[in-house]
Every structure is written in C-alpha cells, then in structure tokens.
C-alpha cells in the first residue's frame, strides 16, 4: 500500500521509523537535485540533503500539516542552501568535476550513446550551468523550483516569502538572462 506523505508523517510521529524512511526514499532525489542545482557542488549538495532530512526528522513533531510535507522539506533545504551560499560568500557556480572525461562518461553509460550526442549533451550541460551561475540567487531558485520541481507560482511565493507578482518577475528576469546567455552559445 502506498501512503501519502502526510500519512507517512503522521505514522512517523506515532513512532513508526519505517514511515520516515519511506519519506526519505521518496524525497531524497528531488531534495538532492534541488541542492545540487542551487549550490552546484555534489558533495555539498549531499551534505545539504542529509542535513535537510536530519532537521526534518528533529522537527517532525512540530509539523502540523499547514503546508504540504514536500513544501516544508523544500523550505528546509532552501534555507540550508542559502546558509551555504552565505557561508561561502560567493556566487554558487555549478561545476563539472575537472577529472570527468567524456570518454569515461561514455564508458559508464548504457546503452552506448553515440559520442557526438554525448559531447553535445555535455556541452549543453556546461552551458546551462554557466548561464545559471550568472543569475542572482532568488531568480535561480525560482527557476529551479518551477522548471525542475513543478511548483506553482503560489508555492514558490510561499517558500520564498515574497508576493506572487515578485515570483513572476524573478522568473521572467531569470529567463531573460538565460535567453541572452544561452543565445551566445549559438
């Protein structure tokens, strides 16, 4: 039987650790992806992801269901990302590790992808990462939450603590920058 997030939360609060494990399994990937795209470093994204679940676990008793569990989790993760950015005192730059070799990637991928496609996708990824790195944090976060996590404008506004209109403006401005930066590539 598949429990909803809120049901799993209720069961977790009631003492069923297994239910919280299921929540971790269900949300670990999205939270990690969010952290990775915001701060751009795999190892740090992993730490943020771990810390997110740790904090959620600690605060589970205080979760009253006033928001979706996922929104609550995203909020924790985003706060941790912001802390990370402040601690680093720099603009997050998404980096592909220096030692990554395209041929290794090709060898590690199955089924075998034509090398031209692989190189093209690799270049595209690098271009997106560079373009995203040019955005102010709030625009980048809005785009990530919208594009990759499918949140509504209202949900992003709630998470970011800003008006709905501001979210739309941030999205528009962010997309405009990306349009310009990605246009340079062509």
């Amino acid at each position: 039987m598949t429990w909803s997030d809120e049901e799993l939360v209720t069961r977790s609060i009631g003492g069923d650790a297994e239910s919280f494990n299921q929540l971790v399994l269900r949300w670990e990937r999205p939270i990690y992806a969010l952290a990775y795209r915001v701060i751009g470093r795999e190892e740090d994204a992993r730490d943020v992801c771990q810390e997110t679940f740790l904090r959620a676990f600690r605060a589970l008793g205080g979760f009253r269901g006033q928001a979706k569990f996922s929104s609550w989790l995203y909020r924790i993760a985003l706060n941790l990302c912001r802390d990370w950015v402040r601690r680093q005192r720099r603009t997050p730059v998404v980096q592909v590790p220096e030692d990554v070799d395209v041929l290794e990637l090709a060898a590690a991928r199955e089924p075998v992808e034509p090398i031209e496609d692989l190189v093209e996708r690799h270049d595209l990824t690098r271009a997106v990462e560079r373009a995203m790195a040019k955005l102010p944090e709030e625009q980048r976060t809005a785009i990530i939450l919208k594009e990759y996590h499918g949140l509504t404008f209202q949900e992003i506004a709630d998470l970011s603590g800003c008006p709905l209109s501001t979210v739309k403006t941030r999205l528009y401005q962010g997309l405009a920058v990306l349009r310009r930066e990605l246009g340079k590539r062509e």
């Binding site: 990937r29 990690y32 990775y36 595209l124 990824t125 785009i143 997309l175």
Partner: peptide, 16 residues
C-alpha cells in the same frame, strides 16, 4: 525564444 530556453533547461540533468 523563452520556450527554447525552457527546452534547453529541460536537458540539464542533475547527478541524481
């Protein structure tokens, strides 16, 4: 153009 940007963004896969 913005649809093109979205299409490009969709191809950015995080390591997860």
């Amino acid at each position: 153009d913005l649809r093109g940007v979205r299409s490009t963004l969709a191809q950015w896969a995080a390591p997860e």
